[in-house]
């Protein structure tokens, strides 16, 4: 075939494929936003949900999602950081190969299975019950592989020359990691945290049996996490936004279930979009900030 024609055909095919991806994305997002945003009002965001009557909001579900995310990150980030540093800086040979395989297996587990496992072990066996803590543990299992991989990649993307520079100045490997490699890896790590947060934020299946499907009334003025009624109490059951959407669509008893579900979906999508966009800008900003002067 004439190379020029072949080139043109290839171009056309590739552009078409890219267009399909973009069109699906735009269609999905705009469909959800167009259908959902009209129901998003200040009342919708600030009112508690209703069991039987119309006019419920998503205040508690939205807060639960954010709180669960924060707890998940508090548990999973230190573990992922340690594992990521080990894999990138210290691990070699068979052991790190084994760890990588383990991580891959963990990341390919269906989230409903992870949820059921945590349900059986934590909720039932350890008598923790449906709680934010159980949910955070389930999400940690779900989040760890992504985050570990991401941290390992962020460390790996720092050129080896930087390590040699540190070592040649008489610094220990550890000091080089903390003082040279880690600061350079931070933008990538932050981006990774935010992107994985988006996935955690939208997760439903792993939470149905762990953090539960009920949103008890909580007191937002009570800052003591050990009080049963406190909004910070990690031992209370907590329905998240994603679980709420699922529940409304399967067994919603409220007459405006469809509207609430649409509005919730719009909020969910918006939050995740904000996560993704801010990851991009924050990563760039941090990189500029870290590389220039820090007085």
């Amino acid at each position: 075939m004439n190379p020029r024609i072949a080139n043109k055909i290839a171009h056309g095919v590739i552009y078409t494929l890219v267009a399909i991806v973009i069109i699906i994305l735009i269609f999905l997002i705009s469909y959800i936003l167009v259908n959902g945003l009209p129901y998003v009002t200040p009342h919708f965001l600030s009112a508690p949900s209703q069991v039987m009557n119309a006019g419920g909001g998503i205040r508690d579900q939205l807060f639960n999602s954010i709180y669960l995310l924060i707890l998940t990150l508090i548990i999973s980030f230190p573990i992922a950081l340690g594992a990521g540093i080990y894999l990138s800086e210290y691990g070699s040979g068979k052991i790190s190969g084994l760890i990588r395989t383990t991580i891959e297996v963990l990341s390919s587990l269906p989230s409903i299975i992870v949820g059921l496992f945590v349900y059986l072990l934590f909720v039932i066996r350890f008598h923790i019950g449906f709680s934010i803590l159980s949910g955070a543990v389930a999400l940690t299992f779900f989040n760890l592989p992504i985050l570990t991989r991401n941290i390992e990649d962020s460390f790996q993307s720092v050129p080896n020359l930087q390590r040699e520079a540190g070592i040649s100045l008489g610094l220990s490997h550890w000091k080089t990691i903390t003082g040279v490699i880690f600061p350079e890896a931070i933008p990538g790590i932050i981006t990774g945290i935010i992107l994985s947060s988006g996935r955690v934020f939208g997760e439903a299946a792993a939470l149905i049996y762990t953090s539960g499907q009920s949103a008890p009334v909580v007191n937002y003025a009570d800052w003591n996490p050990f009080d049963a009624a406190s909004f910070l109490n990690p031992m209370r059951p907590a329905e998240t936004l994603a679980v709420h959407i699922w529940k409304l669509n399967t067994e919603g008893l409220v007459p405006d279930a469809k509207q609430i579900s649409s509005g919730s979906s719009a909020i969910l999508i918006l939050v995740i979009l904000i996560f993704n966009i801010s990851a991009h800008f924050l990563g760039n900003y941090l990189y500029r900030h870290i590389t220039s002067s820090s007085k």
Binding site: L161, Q162, A165, G170, P183, T291, S292, S293
Partner: peptide
Amino acid sequence: YELRKHIGMVFQRPNPFAKSINN
């Protein structure tokens, strides 16, 4: 670590740290 303070090294490709000149 002490030894490398006495015997310094400069590499093939310039590898300044991603920090300010001062730092």
